[in-house]
């Protein structure tokens, strides 16, 4: 049972202090199983992005306890967390952040080059494969800054998958995509979860997307409804 849990959040509380003290997350607790495709919904401003930053280990300024793959991550140093993220977490931002001066291929390869566990050729092959999956193989040699918003978002997804992370988190990963591409991304996520046992946590405003996922967590004012 224990080994089947990919992510465990216990009483997560988060405050913002600017412009005044304000509780965004009000003691959230939940578990996500390995191979589960979870979506987070809720109206704008309910705290979804804030929660995802905490879950992704990037934000360490919170109360409560966070556990991923059976490892407690609360209280670790920034550099330890960076190494952990590199290996175990793939992240797609709400605003598709790529490195503009690098090619699409380089952007996708970078997390794998950083972890340095495979040869360059293997990494490049894998990056091509991911781009193909998202219909971007023709753009591989272009500079990332020359792509359209939707294309950039798909590159970000391809990048998030490169290290075969245990958990893939996406903050509205299909926010800029047309219905055909949204469906494609949905299929990819479901396949990763069900065939390969990778855990997906995606924030979405797309009701169809949410309804078709394994489980939906609906948030309102920093609480799970």
């Amino acid at each position: 049972m224990e080994s089947n849990i990919a992510l465990r959040a216990e009483r997560i509380v988060k405050y913002f202090y600017e412009p005044e003290k304000f509780q965004v997350l009000k003691g959230l607790s939940f578990e996500v199983e390995k191979g589960e495709f979870l979506t987070l919904t809720g109206k704008s401003g309910s705290g979804k992005s804030t929660l995802l930053y905490v879950l992704s280990t990037m934000d360490t300024d919170y109360e409560g306890r966070l556990e991923l793959n059976g490892e407690t991550l609360t209280g670790r140093t920034q550099n330890q967390l960076a190494a952990f993220r590199n290996e175990h977490i793939g992240f797609v931002f709400q605003f598709h952040y790529l490195l503009p001066d690098f090619t699409v291929l380089d952007n996708v390869m970078l997390p794998a080059l950083k972890i340095n566990k495979k040869s360059r050729a293997e990494i490049e092959a894998k990056a091509y494969q991911n781009l193909q999956l998202l219909g971007l193989e023709a753009q591989a040699r272009k500079l990332a800054s020359r792509l359209s918003g939707g294309q950039q978002q798909r590159v970000a997804i391809a990048r998030a998958l490169i290290n075969d992370p245990a958990v893939i988190m996406g903050d509205e990963p299909t926010g800029n995509l047309d219905s055909k591409n949204t469906q494609n991304v949905f299929d990819i996520f479901r396949e990763l979860a069900h065939e390969r046992g990778q855990t997906i946590i995606a924030v979405t405003h797309d009701e169809d997307f949410a309804r078709n996922s394994d489980r939906v967590i609906d948030m309102s004012d920093g609480l799970i409804v």
Binding site: R85, F93, Y97, L110
Partner: peptide, 16 residues
């Protein structure tokens, strides 16, 4: 500064 933030989000350390 954004690129640095992205690199760190992807797992690059302060030393990197």
């Amino acid at each position: 500064i954004r690129e640095i933030a992205i690199l760190k989000a992807m797992g690059f350390s302060g030393g990197d």
